[in-house]
Structures are given as structure tokens and as C-alpha cells.
């Protein structure tokens, strides 16, 4: 190997991507050539410079939710696909027949509302799991309610109430924008010991009194309630009684 060969190969050499024979030839040359040793050293420094200096962009917290919603929509129109999606196509004809029968009964609104609620429950669970899986729980990390609350303004069509609940044992750790029910919603993130609690806040009325306010799905406990024209969903892997305490803390009047 001469100096030109070494110069050409030094980038791959520094990356450890040359084969053994080429490495041996290159190192034989380096022993007797100070210029090339300097050149290789320089390549190494340049690589370090990039690794240390170049920015690593982390996905924004809401992206996982956005993708999840897009995946759900891609499977069929999420607004009309029932929760049990398995084999729905072959059943479509039968379902439309059943639907026609239901339509003629007074129970229509109840079934539709229940379906909507059930789907929403599943979406809340999915969003929570997605955020955990992708390790992106938080867009804005802060325990300060006066930092988190204004962060949401301009991003949502509601101003979510944000309170730190450290005194009740549930410190606020931050918030993120998420997607539930085909719209951006606020998700506040709290901690209790090692457990993470998501508090989703949706505008308006999500079919009150139809689905149970307390339930569990896939090992997660859920609580749902309404307040001030907004619907709240709390979800966590906490014990159900601890999640009850969390709900009480959130709903307690601010002092």
C-alpha cells in the first residue's frame, strides 16, 4: 500500500470496516509513514467531532399517537369499524341486517353511544401503550403547572386544567399532545412511585353514563369522569384503589 491507497482506505479503516488483509497492509505502511499516521488520526478526530457535535433528533411525543391513529384509520374507517375488527368483512352483510333491526328499535342511541364509548376506551389504552412503548411520554417536561398549561394553548381547542398533585402523592412530570377520537387531545403525565399515569383530557361530552366510569383493559386500570364540559380519562398500571385516589386528587377543588 502506498500513501494514496492509505488515504483512500483511512475512512473505512477508522470505521473498522476493512478486511484483515487490508488492515495488515495499511498498518505496515503506517509504521513507516508519519504523514499517513497523522492523516488516520485526523480521520478519527473528524468522526468523533461528528458523533459529539451532530444533533440527534428525537421524535416529538405526539408522533407515535399520530401514527397509531393513521394505522387505525388505514385498517378501515375508524369511525364506523366496530371494536371487534376480526373478520368484520364477511359479517358486514349480516351486521347491516342486524343494524337495520336495531335502527327500528328505540335502543339505537344507546348501542351507538356504547360503541363510541367502547372504542374511545380502547383508543385511550392504545395511546397510553404506544407512548410507553415508544418511550415518548412527554413533549413538555415540567413539574410546574404554570409551564405546562400555557404550552397547550394554541395547540388545542380547549384549555386543559393542569395541576401539580405532589402533595397528594402524584407529582406532575409533564404533558404531551396525543390523538384520541380522531382529534388532538391533552395528555398530562403524573407519577406515583415507579408508576406512570396518563390523564387524557377531551373536549365535550363522551357519552356519559353508558360505559362504566371505572374499568380495566389489558392490565391497565381506567377511570373516566366529566367536569367543566370536558371528559377526563385516567389510565395507569397502578392498583385500582390507587387510581381512585388519583381521581379524587384531580377532582378535589383547588385551594
Amino acid at each position: 500500500m502506498d500513501c494514496n491507497d492509505v488515504t483512500r482506505a483511512s475512512s473505512s479503516y477508522v470505521d473498522g470496516e476493512l478486511d484483515a488483509a487490508a488492515v495488515a497492509a495499511l498498518e505496515r505502511h503506517l509504521e513507516g509513514c508519519a504523514d499517513c499516521r497523522l492523516g488516520v488520526e485526523h480521520q478519527r478526530e473528524l468522526s468523533q467531532l461528528v458523533r459529539r457535535g451532530a444533533q440527534r433528533f428525537a421524535a416529538p411525543g405526539h408522533l407515535a399517537g399520530r401514527i397509531g391513529a393513521a394505522l387505525d384509520a388505514a385498517k378501515g374507517d375508524a369511525r364506523v369499524v366496530p371494536l371487534r375488527r376480526a373478520a368484520w368483512r364477511p359479517l358486514a352483510l349480516a351486521a347491516s341486517f342486524v343494524l337495520a333491526m336495531i335502527l327500528s328499535s328505540g335502543a339505537t342511541w344507546l348501542v351507538a353511544a356504547y360503541d363510541r364509548q367502547d372504542r374511545l376506551t380502547q383508543e385511550v389504552v392504545s395511546s397510553h401503550v404506544r407512548a410507553l412503548l415508544s418511550n415518548r411520554m412527554i413533549d413538555i417536561a415540567s413539574s410546574d403547572q404554570h409551564t405546562v398549561k400555557p404550552w397547550f394553548s394554541g395547540k388545542l381547542d380547549l384549555a386543559p386544567p393542569v395541576r401539580d398533585l405532589t402533595t397528594a402523592g402524584f407529582p406532575l412530570v409533564g404533558g404531551r399532545l396525543d390523538y384520541v377520537g380522531q382529534r388532538p387531545v391533552a395528555a398530562l403525565v403524573y407519577r406515583h412511585n415507579q408508576h406512570v399515569i396518563d390523564l387524557f383530557i377531551l373536549p365535550g361530552d363522551a357519552a356519559p353514563g353508558v360505559a362504566p366510569p371505572a374499568t380495566s383493559r389489558q392490565g391497565y386500570a381506567l377511570r373516566r369522569w366529566r367536569d367543566g364540559g370536558m371528559t377526563f380519562w385516567a389510565i395507569s398500571d397502578l392498583a385500582p384503589e390507587d387510581l381512585d385516589k388519583f381521581e379524587l386528587a384531580v377532582r378535589a377543588p383547588a385551594n
Binding site: I67, N135, R136
Partner: peptide
């Protein structure tokens, strides 16, 4: 089922979200 296929995909793909975003952002 559609649902378990989606979950399996998400379990595999979501941990790479940061890598995907970094490459796309650059």
C-alpha cells in the same frame, strides 16, 4: 386478526421511532 397484527407491528416498529425520525429529520 387485524388487531393483533397491528399490535405486533407496533411492538416491533415503535421502538425505532426515534431512529426513523432522526434519519428523516436530517
Amino acid at each position: 386478526t387485524d388487531d393483533s397484527r397491528t399490535r405486533r407491528f407496533e411492538r416491533l416498529a415503535l421502538p425505532h421511532l426515534d431512529a426513523a425520525y432522526n434519519l428523516a429529520r436530517w
